[in-house]
Design a protein around this nucleic acid. Sequence first.
DNA 1: TCTGGGGTCCTAGGACCC
DNA 2: TCTGGGGTCCTAGGACCC
Length: 423
Amino acid sequence: MKPVIALVDCNNFYASCEKLFRPDLKHKPLIVLSNNDGCVVARSREAKALGIKMGVPVFQVRGLIREQGIAVFSSNYALYADMSSRVMGVLEMLAPEVEIYSIDEAFLELTGVSHAVNLTDFGTQVRATVGQWTGIAVCVGIAPTKTLAKLANHAAKQYPATRGVVDLTDPERQRRLMALLPVSEVWGIGRRLTLRLNQLGIKTALDLAQTEPHWIQKEFSIVVARTVRELNGESCLELESVAPPKKQIVCSRSFGERIMDKHAMRGAIGQYTARAGEKLRHEKQVAKRITVFIRTSLFNAAEPSYGNTVTSELLRHTSDTRDLLAQSHRLLDSIWRDGYRYAKAGIMLSDFCSEAQGQRGLFDGIESRPHSPGLMKIIDQINQQKRGLVFLAGQGIKKEWSMRRDYLSPGYTTHWQDLPRVI
DNA sequence: TCTGGGGTCCTAGGACCC
DNA sequence: TCTGGGGTCCTAGGACCC
């Protein structure tokens, strides 16, 4: 049976979520900013038409925002995560197998489905159902491999005549589309690879598809060779409906205001450490390595710059915030330098194993903290209801460095007091 | 003045061993 | 005086993704 995969991708996801609860902005240009209100990370159709580019620093488009009356929102992650799980829930009802690929995209397994229904009709049905049940518009690309499904989805987004659904199972249709698309539109081909491929005369997706995979592997890597095979309809990337366990957890932020005081930095590092520990316990894993980094701004050449990263092994695998916090503060002490205006800091946990293996303390004989799992569980339970309600003293109390979110919308779907009102 | 955050995979090169 | 080569493991860094 020939494999068939669909890629369902939400249109301008963050911007669409904001518009859902602001019908007054329905046809208005709207943008969503990154954490700390730094860059533009999502744009409504109207904002794209005004020439606002993805990733542009917001201060560079202040003028345009004012002139055009563009609505601006800070990232409201609670809202997007909740809307995402609603969309994914609908998809899971419609397809036998679903891989949630990112907050706004999922691959659906459709192998065999094509015998029962017309694939374009199926895509249209997915679009209509998600739209009706969640209010979010999606596009659907259907093809024999993930890479081709990505291209099909791109076409569905780009060409309105497709009505948001492209069935790219026909090889001749694949060739016609690939001949139109620059190689940079292919999934897995980023800026650097585009440059090198172009130098070799490979300009379109079709040019890439027509290269020799062995030669590509020699010149580039096995990753690009796989992409070539996928473009030719040979499936190399499996659908992963069960998420594999994480291998690292990162928690990092830019500061709302520069940090110069070590005590404030200890608070920030403490905060990120606690959050990382919470994520780790949620994964039911324990970590052995911890990394701390701090740095000044990357963009201000005028002021003295400094950045440093340090990694160390914990005495044993752990997910106890107290262990993680003690170590991250020691690491901070080792790289902290007075006299700089720090812009960003973060911590990373890695070298994981499952809780069950870690807690036996196989190799060291060092006693774990008393009451560790019970205490952490209670802290997590309380904080699940309201983040940051209970915390360790090492996480700091004053949050003068916390990120800027000047344009935050209400938690419409996640907080009772923020429920939208109809007047 | 103001430029995000969180991931994955692969490769090259060094350390170490026999 | 002569000073190999292959294998494995680990890490840092690059490239990509959303």
